[in-house]
């Protein structure tokens, strides 16, 4: 466990909590893609099945359980509790365009051809593209609430920190998981455009709006 990994996990947790707090306080999930949140719930569900088979550490188990619970609460808030505020009109990304290739790829390129391992691989590939419905929604409406951009910033920061974590692990323990690293880099690239807007607009006190 290194500093990048810890900070990455903290950023990830912070992003999820920011989103939950935003929905809870404003009693609205306007501007949030329910589809991205369903994908994240699916990512955690398929990845953390090893909760039943492998014990890594107390930290690992607790974080997994927290992520799972938060993901399902978020989906519940969007589709049940604050359903009326959900902008389904603009959440129109076609999920099959992500799910079909990701499923196919996880069968083709994995560490071993076993159900748990294929599901783990599926979750890694799916996570790398799960934010796309959210980014699509922002590009469609042309704007995002500032708190939503903070959510995206911490989610992107988590990915960037994980890359630093892998560089560190490669040099210190020769650890290198190609599937996770390649997917993680792809995922981080999706945030680059957003990072640029975040730094040039949101951090200067302006609202994120696209021309």
């Amino acid at each position: 466990m290194n500093i990048f990994r810890i900070l990455g996990d903290v950023s990830h947790l912070l992003a999820i909590i920011i989103l939950l707090v935003k929905i809870h306080r404003s009693k609205s999930c306007a501007g949030i893609s329910g589809k991205s949140q369903i994908l994240f719930a699916l990512v955690f569900t398929t990845r953390y099945l090893d909760l039943f088979t492998t014990f890594i550490s107390l930290y690992n188990t607790v974080m997994k359980v927290i992520f799972l619970i938060c993901a399902y609460i978020t989906v519940y808030m969007i589709y049940v509790k604050f359903r009326k505020t959900f902008d389904s009109e603009n959440d129109s990304f076609r999920l099959e365009f992500l799910l079909v290739p990701v499923t196919g790829l996880s069968f083709l390129e994995n560490h071993s051809f076993t159900p748990l391992e294929i599901l783990w691989t599926f979750s890694i590939y799916l996570e790398s593209v799960a934010i796309l419905p959210q980014l699509f929604m922002i590009s469609k409406t042309g704007e995002a609430e500032t708190i939503t951009t903070h959510y995206l910033f911490f989610l992107g920061l988590y990915r960037a920190l994980y890359i630093a974590n892998w560089v560190w692990r490669y040099h210190t323990e020769k650890f290198y998981d190609q599937i996770a690293v390649v997917s993680g880099v792809v995922q981080t690239i999706f945030y680059c455009d957003f990072f640029y807007l975040y730094v040039t607009k949101v951090l200067k006190g302006k609202k994120l709006s696209l021309p």
Partner: peptide
């Protein structure tokens, strides 16, 4: 040969 990985990250 494909190695079995221990997935210790989140």
């Amino acid at each position: 040969e494909k190695k079995s990985f221990k997935h210790d990250e989140l």
